[in-house]
Design a protein around this nucleic acid. Structure first.
Length: 434
DNA sequence: TCTGGGGTCCTAGGACCC
DNA sequence: TCTGGGGTCCTAGGACCC
């Protein structure tokens, strides 16, 4: 087996070698719904759909049986779901899923310390078990124990990818573990030619989707094997450092270490929605923007964060030739204030909107960071500002306690408003009840 | 039958400063 | 009089992930 490429020497002996687990819950949302109904997640026919009312609603999760027998997967549309009595269709209960996620993470914490745990998403996590090996056994044994704990205590089935680094663990999970009866797989540096290089399609590789697949095709690269045997200089020249990274990934190289994770430098809090109909009136759109801006501002205050930028993304109706616009604005001072944040979003909208019909609205508060320094406006006596702040925080407290619909501004009762409909949402999806 | 929602990261190009 | 390189910050656009 070759261990090096001609141009870039890859010496696996010199690379960090750790024991990584990448764990995901099989069809997480659908499985939680199965357990709630006293069904086995692997036997149930459940589809979690974002919204009953919209034909274009997306499938957020589908039980393995539904995937296999009906070909419905995450991302399918509601109108594609066959009319079959076996299938249970449900809207999401994000609150319940978040609670389950917490319980699962607490099981992980029995096996690793906080710095060796990386919660990647609501249903996926990385664990570096290198240092707990002596306590709990080999990575495979630890994987088995965790799978058993989660199944015994929560009734959920998990798949585990094991690897010498996070990338290998993730690739093992996605490309092999999920298909194995035992729901585990181990990918090491040594078996790269039989594992990574045998990945059937470029888009099965983490980090490659339609865009890069096309760019790689243009370079005459059609497989992961071929990617690994391309001169990295060519990749660097045409795809930048991401091209170089793809090359390294195709050899299973990943230097990242969980305990040395660096927090993202450019954190953002955003909110977006696709509207039920096209919006034409300035006033209606401004109401939508104000409602969403307030929700983001409330999140900032809840975490005691301030933002230093705002970004507004408007998507136009499909009847419109233009697709939309995105405009960013760097704020003179960090803020978490409702009025101020709404003001900047309004400004961006009014400056750039030329009466096109609007279908999508996405707002993001960018350059978010914790902060205590409150910049007082020189021309303000400070009293009004304090008053505004106290009203904002009272509203926040009431909403946290009684739900977002408990308090809302009068404009939310106007026809174009979507606030009440979305008030029960958590993480953009329906919150559900227990 | 039309559009989930919430994030992160990279790059090119322009402005500005030294 | 002509020509300059480096650094930083910002926006817009594009790509990816779950």
């Amino acid at each position: 087996m070759e261990k090096t490429s001609e141009k870039f020497n890859i010496d696996y002996q010199k690379l960090p070698r750790r024991d990584l687990l990448c764990i995901d819950v099989k069809s997480f949302f659908a499985s939680v719904e199965a357990v709630r109904r006293n069904l086995h997640p692997m036997d149930a026919y459940i589809i979690v759909i974002s919204d009953f009312k919209r034909p274009g609603a997306v499938v957020l999760a589908a039980s393995p049986k539904v995937k296999k027998e009906f070909g419905i997967t995450t991302g399918s549309r509601k109108f594609q779901i066959p009319d079959n009595k076996k299938i249970i269709l449900t809207e999401p209960s994000m609150g319940v899923y978040l609670k389950k996620n917490l319980e699962i993470c607490n099981i992980f914490r029995r096996y690793v310390s906080e710095e060796d745990l990386w919660i990647y998403s609501i249903d996926e996590a990385f664990l570096d078990v290198s240092s707990t090996r002596s306590l709990f056994g080999t990575p495979r044994e630890i994987a088995k124990k965790i799978q058993k704990d989660i199944y015994d205590e929560l009734g959920l089935v998990t798949a585990v990818g094991i690897g010498d680094n996070p990338l290998l663990a993730k690739l093992a999970l996605d490309n092999e573990a999920k298909k194995q009866p035992c729901q585990t797989a181990y990918w090491s540096y040594e078996n790269v030619p039989e594992t990574i290089w045998k990945i059937p399609s470029l888009t099965d590789m983490w980090g490659i989707s339609k865009g890069y697949e096309k760019k790689l095709h243009n370079l005459g690269i059609g497989s992961v094997y071929s990617l690994a045997h391309t001169d990295p200089k060519i990749l660097k020249r045409s795809l930048g450092i991401l091209g170089l990274q793809l090359f390294y990934h195709s050899w299973g190289v990943d230097y990242s270490r969980l305990s040395e994770r660096i927090p993202s430098k450019n954190k953002s809090f955003g909110k977006g929605q696709i509207l039920m109909k096209d919006y034409f009136s300035k006033e209606d759109i401004l109401i939508i923007i104000a409602e969403m801006a307030e929700e983001i501002a409330a999140r900032l205050r809840k975490h005691n964060y301030f933002c230093r930028g705002v970004s507004l993304h408007i998507g136009f109706s499909k009847d419109c030739q233009e697709s939309g616009f995105r405009k960013d604005y760097h704020l003179p001072n960090p803020t978490q204030d409702n009025k101020e944040i709404i003001h900047y979003f309004n400004y961006l909208f009014l400056e750039n909107w030329k009466k096109q019909p609007v279908r999508q609205v996405y707002l993001s508060c960018t350059k978010v960071a914790p902060g205590k320094a409150i910049q007082t406006n020189l021309f303000d006596n400070g009293i009004n500002e304090e008053k505004e702040k106290s009203i904002d925080s009272v509203v926040d407290i009431i909403r946290q306690k009684y739900g977002k619909a408990a308090v809302f501004k009068a404009h939310s009762l106007e026809e174009g408003s979507t606030f009440l409909e979305r008030s029960g949402h958590i993480g953009g999806h329906k919150g559900g009840t227990e």
